[in-house]
Computed example of a mutant assay.
Amino acid sequence: MQKRARQVRVRVRWYSYEKRTYGDVEIGVLKITDEEERVEHGSPIEVLLSVIEELSKTRKGDYFEVQVDAPGIVEVMGENPKYRGQRLLFPRPSRLYRVGILSRDKLSSLIKDTGGDYASFKLDDLEWYVEKDEIYVYEGVLNAGENVVAVYLDTSMGPRMIIPSGRDRILQDVLSHPQSSGE
Rank of each mutant, 00 (worst) to 15 (best):
M1L: 05
M1Q: 05
R4D: 07
A5F: 03
A5S: 10
V8W: 01
R13H: 06
W14V: 00
Y17T: 02
K19T: 11
T21K: 13
T21S: 13
T21Y: 00
G28I: 04
V29M: 02
I32E: 15
I32W: 04
T33D: 09
E35H: 02
E36M: 12
R38C: 11
S43D: 15
P44Y: 07
V47K: 00
V47S: 02
V47G: 04
L49N: 14
S50M: 01
I52C: 04
E53W: 03
E53Q: 10
L55K: 11
L55S: 00
K57S: 11
K57V: 09
K57D: 05
T58H: 04
T58L: 14
K60T: 10
K60G: 00
G61Y: 01
G61N: 02
D62I: 07
D62S: 12
E65H: 06
E65L: 11
E65K: 08
A70E: 07
P71C: 03
P71H: 03
G72C: 08
V74A: 10
V76N: 12
M77K: 15
G78R: 09
E79F: 15
N80F: 14
N80L: 14
P81N: 11
P81L: 10
P81C: 09
K82C: 09
Y83N: 05
R84H: 08
Q86E: 15
L88A: 09
F90Q: 00
F90N: 00
P91G: 06
R92A: 08
R95W: 08
Y97M: 08
R98P: 07
S103A: 07
S103W: 01
R104N: 03
D105I: 01
K106S: 11
L107N: 04
L107C: 07
L107E: 13
S109Y: 00
S109L: 02
I111K: 15
K112S: 12
D117A: 06
Y118K: 07
Y118A: 06
Y118V: 01
S120P: 01
S120K: 10
F121H: 01
K122M: 05
L126H: 07
L126R: 03
L126Y: 04
W128I: 00
V130C: 00
E131S: 05
E131H: 04
D133K: 13
E134N: 07
E134D: 11
I135M: 09
Y136G: 01
V137Q: 05
Y138W: 15
G140E: 10
V141N: 09
N143W: 09
A144L: 06
A144G: 09
A144M: 06
G145Q: 07
E146F: 05
N147G: 10
V149M: 14
A150M: 14
D154N: 12
P159A: 12
R160L: 13
M161A: 08
I163Y: 13
S165C: 02
G166E: 08
D168K: 02
D168M: 13
R169Y: 13
I170V: 15
I170L: 15
D173C: 00
D173P: 00
D173N: 12
V174F: 09
V174A: 12
S176V: 05
H177F: 01
P178Y: 07
P178C: 01
S181L: 06
G182F: 08
E183R: 06
